[in-house]
């Protein structure tokens, strides 16, 4: 492991500007990811989790997006790197998979072509060599009768195979970092678990760092080393998966878990979080969750709570959380968790 983390974000803010309003979707995020580490960003729609992910590759719509703060990915300063050099990083060092492989793959090109295209772009190999590698990749992601599937168009494949093809394309250049935007959400239950396990084994085999965005706590539990919970554009809780799932500190995380249906909730009333997330078009002071929080006090509404560290590797933005005695390793958990 080098001294530099794979991803280092400090005070990252992303705003979308239109004639009507400015929406600050990501409002000051600090994030570190080590090589080979799997981090899940957990949040609901509008929390800014997908925007954060896209910001790491500067993929949010150009001309409408303003990014500030500091952001380094695999040693590149994403804030200042010119487009030409950034495109050499995209797909090679950092690559991305999406929720809907049907719309994320070009419908008029074959799967084989779209994989080979990536290889040719970054490795400068011949078309024939790229086709051979594409076949190996399809086999690596366990697509049956891979040779035949190379010539298939996206609409000719089932949802699970499409997502496998998307993954094959993303790992074609052995990236150091894989960004996954809800890659299993659109899949059937029996297929979702297959894709999760595939991603987990590929991650270990290739030693990739992974940032995995999801709204599903169960999915995060299957794959993440650490979980970052996002609410209204900010990370409100961060910690190892085991810690966050066993003992959530932030009232929002607690509410989310109480609201998650699972075996054992039958016949009981689900705890719910009243109200709705704030409208990000309007700036607000204080803790964004305060209006929905049963423990909120005046102090909560005055200013955004700073991170408290209730345990090793844990960070929570809530004034009710006490700092623990041991504070020697802030915000860092080993990948072994």
């Amino acid at each position: 492991m080098t001294g530099q983390p794979l991803v280092r974000a400090r005070g990252l803010r992303v705003s979308f500007i239109s004639r009507e309003a400015t929406v600050t979707a990501v409002n000051g995020i600090d994030l570190d990811l080590d090589e080979g580490e799997v981090l899940c960003i957990l949040g609901e729609s509008g929390s800014g989790k997908s925007v954060t992910l896209r910001a790491l590759l500067r993929l949010n719509p150009k001309g409408k997006t303003v990014m500030t703060g500091a952001l380094a990915v695999a040693g590149h300063d994403i804030m200042t790197i010119p487009d030409g050099r950034l495109s050499a990083v995209r797909g090679k060092v950092v690559s991305m998979i999406f929720q809907e492989p049907m719309t994320a793959l070009d419908p008029v090109f074959t799967i084989g072509y779209q994989i080979a295209e990536t290889l040719i772009r970054h490795e400068g190999i011949s078309r024939r060599e790229a086709d051979r590698r594409a076949l190996e990749l399809l086999e690596l992601v366990q697509i049956p009768s891979a040779r035949r599937r190379l010539g298939a168009y996206p609409h000719e494949l089932s949802g699970g195979l499409r997502q496998r093809a998307m993954i094959a394309m993303a790992i074609s250049c052995r990236p150091k970092l894989l960004l996954a935007d809800e890659p299993t959400t659109a899949l059937d239950a029996t297929v979702q678990i297959q894709i999760l396990l595939l991603l987990r084994s590929l991650q270990q085999e290739l030693g990739m760092g992974v940032i995995f965005v999801t709204h599903d706590l169960g999915v995060a539990g299957e794959i993440a080393d650490r979980i970052a919970v996002m609410y209204a554009g900010r990370i409100v809780e961060l910690g190892s998966t085991v810690d966050v799932m066993r003992q959530p500190f932030h009232p929002y995380t607690q509410g989310l878990m109480g609201a998650t249906v699972h075996s054992g909730t039958r016949g009981k009333r689900l705890t719910t979080i009243p109200g709705a997330p704030p409208d990000l078009r309007f700036p607000f002071e204080g803790c964004a969750f305060a209006p929905r929080c049963s423990h909120a006090s005046d102090a909560c509404r005055e200013s955004m709570p700073a991170f408290r560290h209730p345990g090793p590797g844990r960070a929570v933005r809530c004034i009710r959380v006490e700092d623990a005695e041991i504070k020697h390793s802030p915000k860092r958990v080993s990948a072994m968790a």
Binding site: A189, I193, L196, D216, G218, V219, G221, E222, V242
Partner: peptide, 9 residues
């Protein structure tokens, strides 16, 4: 059995 286990350990 396809449901996530909800237990990271």
């Amino acid at each position: 059995a396809s449901r996530p286990s909800m237990d990271p350990t």
